[in-house]
Design a protein around this nucleic acid. Structure first.
Length: 836
DNA sequence: ATAGGGTTAG
């Protein structure tokens, strides 16, 4: 046999090895070949490119040139594809030069490769030159360029090229539309429908790939009926199309339909694959159905996909979200041979969600030790854990890492950082991060405002509005909910009404998050008429809406209305949740309906399958305590399935004070102080207990002890709003005789209101409804202590960019101001306040 | 040897 025959045989063997035994085996053969020609080099090089080993492919290309072998068009094509994948523009340009030198520049395949290379490397102009050089209207080149632009997320440029293509008289085909449709999810439903209409007009036939792209587009816009309609247009179905349909149904929370599509798929003889099972598991976690998730898990085991990375990741997510324990997910994790970044992130997020933040931090370190680098998902998850723990030291530690790796360029990461700092009480640091960010979005400001709300700093939360407006960031339904909640926290009716106007004009009043906040706002301001009106305007009240309304009624003293609202809620078919029962128990406890409250408590698990948490037990203890059933309350504390916290003991201590049980009260105070020795409220409750029992010596002694330990009573504060000014009263200050007098009345009123079950927030000192106070005092001429203004730059009115001053009421789409004038808000958000 | 569809983590 001659050398030529030998080479021919070896080259064929090389291709066979690459195809059947993988690139490594083929490489061994290649390395041992005594003679190599251009076909041998090309075979091994293209095998590396196909296997995405682009770096090795380019190394081989260099070796080939070094050996003096001249490449052909096949070699150059593979090398160019590897350059494009690596973003190796310099190497690519050299290859382009060889293409021209070898006279191959008219080869359509190489031209397509070059267009792809230049487009992906941000050299759109070069790519376009190559494209425009051809005047015979090569649709493949045009489509390649559009495809590369879409893959590099340059949506607008892709659209522009599409328009130029049409102008050049080139007709798009099914390939072009598949890529364009992939982009429609970023351009909006309008564009998606436009593309659908265009492809019909161009007379393009629906193949299964194109059908899948259209189905996916409609699914992303929650148009599952259209998606199904399109998929039924032709009988051709494959595993891609079925998976797209199932994923669409899952993402739209149509779990029943997703499962039934899965059954149809199997009946039609198409075998589900790892992607299909990942989608199905995802729908189990989105509706928190452990039962369904376990069924799919067993199917996954049966078909041998348990170790698959996509399925495994989806299983971890499902078990973390649906199961009460972390063990199932941890077991799946151990079964995954090489966990990727998504695997680790799901695991870390799960542990954090289950309250094991420390474990999250450990796993974060383990992940890096295993050689997996965190991405923006991981970092925002880990910052979420910092934020949950309110741990400044952990936040700072991870912030340092983020700065080092320049990960704070990602807005999601920076937003998580803002959230973690604000959650840990470091508002200054949060503002500093905000100042360093290139761009900010509504989430940046919303998380800051809601964290400030959580910490009780509602004034600063409202100030966020001004910064947000100055920054040109529009308020959305979530930020509005936070700002309304700040206004509610302050009980400032006027600011709340301004925000209500903005909600109506921006159309966000249709969102449940906003309307729920409005109900909360008006309840907190003591105006149940307004709260009721806001509640009635909600199209489909969810459990949160009902909870807010019921809680508003209860905390304003309308106990029986609250309980009948609960009946309405059940009749409306809305399932009560854990907050509902907290509210009901609270209502009964404060309304003196002790037996009824016990009934609700017992029914929650039995009838409604809602497990009581520690807060529910605290409420139960309060209820029994107020009823004077102190022993029973004590037994609950001892037998409940949670370790009692200081609040539970304090609740019973308060009951002991009401019923004059000194020994039990002393016991409770002792247990409280073990858990929370720096809480002045414990001393004061105990002192009052002594006073009420006629043991004022002990009362004095307790107060003295408190002072000796460096503790002061938290000053009671309340606000009232008079003519757009906020007046602040504090029980701790004695700067002015009028204030002293008011404070005296305030103390009396506080006691009276509290005993009647009126709104009282332990955590935010003392906050009362301004309207009730105004009525009680008959005061409108109080010196202004601390006015809190959202100033006129807050751009509340969309039309005239100014406040509508002195709003008295918002009814539907009508805004009523103090002099009785009404402004109508039109659907486009403009209102009839021209010239205002 | 040139252009196309589905999935999992915040």
């Amino acid at each position: 046999m001659g050398i030529q025959d030998d080479l021919y045989l070896s080259n064929n063997l090389l291709s066979l090895y690459a195809k059947c035994f993988g690139v490594v085996t083929a490489r061994h053969l290649f390395d041992e070949m005594p003679y190599r020609d251009v076909v041998s080099w090309t075979a091994i090089l293209s095998a590396h490119t196909r296997n995405k080993q682009h770096f090795e492919a380019l190394e081989l290309f260099d070796m080939m040139l070094g050996s003096g072998q001249c490449p052909n068009e096949f070699t150059l094509s593979s090398a160019l594809r590897s350059c494009s994948a690596l973003g190796e523009i310099e190497c690519g340009v050299k290859i382009h030069a060889s293409v021209v030198k070898l006279g191959l520049d008219l080869n359509p395949v190489l031209r397509t490769n070059l267009i792809d290379l230049y487009t992906k490397c941000d050299c759109t102009v070069e790519a376009y030159k190559l494209l425009a050089f051809v005047d015979d209207g090569d649709i493949v080149s045009w489509t390649t360029m559009i495809s590369s632009l879409v893959e590099t997320r340059k949506w607008n440029e892709a659209l522009q090229i599409y328009v130029k293509m049409i102008e050049a008289g080139v007709y798009p085909n099914e390939f072009t539309f598949v890529k364009l449709l992939g982009m429609s999810s970023y351009l909006g439903l309008g564009y998606g429908k436009l593309l659908h209409a265009q492809l019909i007009r161009y007379g393009i036939e629906l193949n299964v790939v194109l059908k899948t792209a259209i189905v996916d587009m409609y699914s992303k816009y929650r148009q599952m009926e259209n998606a199904i309609k399109v998929s039924n247009l032709t009988p051709e179905y494959d595993v891609f199309l079925w998976t797209t349909i199932i994923a669409g149904l899952s993402q739209n929370l149509l779990v029943r339909e997703a499962v039934s599509a899965f059954i149809d798929m199997e009946l039609s003889g198409i075998v589900p694959n790892n992607f299909t099972y990942a989608s199905l598991l995802n729908s189990c976690s989105s509706v928190l159905s452990l039962n369904l998730g376990e069924q799919f898990h067993s199917r996954v085991i049966m078909v041998g996909l348990e170790g698959d990375i996509y399925v495994g990741n989806a299983l971890i997510d499902m078990y973390m979200k649906c199961s009460r324990v972390t063990t199932n997910a941890a077991k799946i994790f151990r079964g995954i041979a090489s966990p990727n970044i998504i695997t680790w992130t799901s695991l870390i997020a799960g542990f954090s969600e289950h309250g094991f933040e420390e474990v999250s931090f450990q796993l974060f370190a383990e992940m890096q030790a295993a050689g997996v680098q965190p991405n923006s998902f991981t970092l925002s998850t880990i910052l979420g854990a910092c934020s949950k723990m309110n741990s400044i030291s952990q936040t700072t530690k991870h912030h340092a890492y983020i700065i080092k790796t320049k990960a704070d360029d990602d807005m999601v990461v920076a937003n998580a950082l803002v959230d973690a700092y604000a959650g840990g009480g470091m508002a200054d640091e949060a503002w500093r991060v905000i100042g360093m960010m290139n761009h900010r979005d509504p989430i940046t400001y919303t998380s800051l405002a809601s964290r400030l709300n959580q910490r009780g700093d509602h004034e600063m939360a409202l100030q966020v509005i001004i910064h947000m407006c100055d920054d040109g960031v529009k308020m959305d339904e979530f930020s509005l909910a936070s700002f309304l909640s700040a206004a509610a926290g302050l009980g400032t009716m006027e600011t709340g009404k301004q925000l209500h106007c903005y909600c109506v004009k921006s159309g966000f009043d249709e969102c449940n998050s906003v309307s729920n906040s409005l109900v909360h706002l008006y309840s907190k301001c003591g105006s149940m008429q307004d709260a009721y009106r806001a509640f009635k305007d909600i199209n489909e009240p969810d459990a949160v809406s009902w909870n807010g309304f019921i809680s508003g009624l209860a905390s304003n003293g309308y106990i029986s209305y609250a309980l009948s609202a609960f009946d309405d809620m059940r009749l409306a078919g809305v399932k009560p949740d854990s907050v509902t029962f907290l509210t009901l128990t609270f209502a009964c406890s404060h309304g003196g309906l002790f037996d009824l409250g016990l009934d609700y408590f017992h029914s929650m698990e039995k009838t409604y399958n809602v497990a009581p948490k520690l807060d529910h037990y605290a409420c139960l203890v309060d209820l029994l305590g107020r009823a004077g059933r102190l022993e029973e309350a004590m037994r609950i504390i001892e037998t409940m399935p949670f370790r009692p916290n200081s609040l539970v003991y304090k609740t019973l201590l308060n009951a002991c004070k009401l019923h004059g049980n000194v020994p039990l009260g002393e016991d409770m105070a002792r247990r409280c102080l073990e858990l929370d020795p720096s809480d002045p409220a414990i001393y004061l409750l105990l002192a009052n207990l002594y006073d009420n029992a006629g043991l004022s010596d002990f009362g004095e002694k307790t107060r003295r002890l408190m002072r000796e330990r460096g503790l002061r009573r938290n000053p009671g504060k309340c606000w009232m709003e008079v003519r757009n000014n906020i007046h602040l009263f504090s029980t701790g200050q004695t700067s002015h005789p009028i204030i002293d007098e008011i404070n005296e009345k305030l103390e009396l009123l506080i006691t009276k209101l509290k005993n009647q079950g009126y709104g009282y927030q332990e955590s935010h000192d003392k906050l009362y409804h301004s309207e009730q106070l105004a009525v009680a005092f008959g005061l409108l001429s109080v010196p202004t202590m601390a006015p809190i203004n959202i100033n006129k730059n807050s751009h509340i009115c969309l039309h005239c960019h100014d406040f509508i001053m002195h709003v008295t009421q918002v009814v539907g789409r009508e805004i009523i101001v103090r002099d009785g004038k009404r402004f109508h808000v039109f659907n486009n958000g403009q209102c009839s306040c021209r010239g205002h």
